[in-house]
Design a protein around this nucleic acid. Structure first.
Lengths: 144, 144
DNA sequence: TATTGTTATACTCTATAACTATA
DNA sequence: TATAGTTATAGAGTATAACAATA
């Protein structure tokens, strides 16, 4: 009989290390000098959402509103986003990504996927299926 | 015939998202009020290595030497690490983790694994095998 | 009174450049 | 002269508390 708890601990540890290594590597590969990691993450959100309220962005990134406000100030000054007063509610502000911001976001996305695709390409189809299934399983765990 | 490039892009994207989500979740679960994330990461390194030079830690975390120096100052002031002059080379310094620091590191590691084990436990054995194999594959990619 | 965003303030993390001490 | 570490300085991210402005 197998010691299941021991096996579980080993799997947990291996998975944890693998995930940390992968994310670190992806960060390095997608590094863009024009903006910091936090700024880039906001641009990536905005390139998907088109527009969003500062408060919503703060929640998405789980940072405080003042913190997000500061990041938006930097991005706006640099011309990557713009703030618009919500015509329907004077308290609200709408943040939009500019064309320059969208270009930067798409470059970053391309770089990240380029490295990963190069690594995945040579793998046997069975291994790729394993990884695809693992991604599904991990999503199930973290979304709950 | 399948569009392999399209499939590869999808897999890369899914894996990337899954890995980012998992690491974020693990960070949240292992959060310790006494130290910041960066400080904890250094403690986790030191609890594995026993001792390391400041420059080596800077390389491991890919930050500049002054940046690591600052983090070490905070950790040393708080009593989680200590600096010792290398007896063999007056230019060098050895950083050691203290007992308090080791306790903190082990608490963090325990919390991370506890959450992960709770998530992995209910999975069918086949899924666990899939994840174990995925961890291996990811290691192969990042270690190269 | 509640909501949304911003400003004020303070601390950490980050980097580059410059400096110290030793080899 | 080269190397390891540190200090000096400054920008960016983080938070909590306080302050608009609007609903």
């Amino acid at each position: 009989m197998v010691d299941e708890s021991e096996e579980l601990a080993r799997l947990a540890s291996d998975l944890r290390v693998a995930a940390f290594r992968l994310t670190r590597r992806l960060r390095i590969e997608s590094h863009i000098d024009e903006v910091t990691d936090s700024q880039l993450t906001v641009l990536l959100w905005l390139s998907r959402l088109e527009r969003a309220a500062p408060g919503a962005l703060a929640e998405l990134e789980r940072v405080s509103p003042p913190s997000m406000n500061r990041t938006l100030n930097v991005l706006e000054t640099a011309g990557y986003v713009r703030r618009i007063d919500d015509p329907e509610d004077g308290r609200r502000v709408i943040v939009e990504i500019t064309e320059r911001g969208a270009e930067l976001a798409s470059t970053a996305r391309r770089r990240r996927n380029a490295w990963l695709k190069a690594e995945l390409g040579p793998l046997p189809a069975a291994d790729r299926r394993t990884l695809a299934r693992a991604a599904e399983l991990l999503d199930g765990m973290t979304l709950r």
